[in-house]
């Protein structure tokens, strides 16, 4: 259950950073968490219901990560307003 716990921890940290508006860090952590969750689904025996539940969580995290990525990309290309 080590990898599952690791995945949960990462997802939890990601949500914290997200809340704190540290979007770059949150994005990185969301990606990491999904990677671990995927490993658990593929290589560590879980019941079908548990697997689908994990997949649904991954979908949520991936959606959120995509939004953060878009936001960060826009931020990069928007020139800073002159003072």
């Amino acid at each position: 259950n080590n990898n599952l716990q690791k995945a949960i921890d990462l997802a939890s940290k990601a949500a914290q950073e997200d809340k704190a508006k540290n979007y770059e860090e949150a994005l990185r952590l969301y990606q990491h968490a999904v990677q671990y969750f995927l490993h658990v689904i593929k290589y560590e025996a879980q019941g079908d219901k548990a697997k689908q539940s994990i997949r649904a969580k991954c979908a949520e995290y991936l959606d959120r990560a995509e939004k953060l990525k878009e936001y960060l990309k826009k931020k990069e290309t928007t020139p800073a307003k002159p003072v």
């Binding site: 994005l27 990606q31 999904v34 990677q35 995927l38 689904i41 593929k42 689908q52 997949r55 649904a56 991954c58 979908a59 949520e60 991936l62 990560a65 995509e66 990525k69």
Partner: peptide
């Protein structure tokens, strides 16, 4: 909903897409 029916391949694909810039 998408979250209910997502598959491992979908997850992998999205993850890869996120990783690329």
């Amino acid at each position: 909903t998408k979250a209910d029916t997502i598959s491992d391949e979908d997850i992998e694909r999205q993850l890869k897409a996120l990783g690329m810039d």
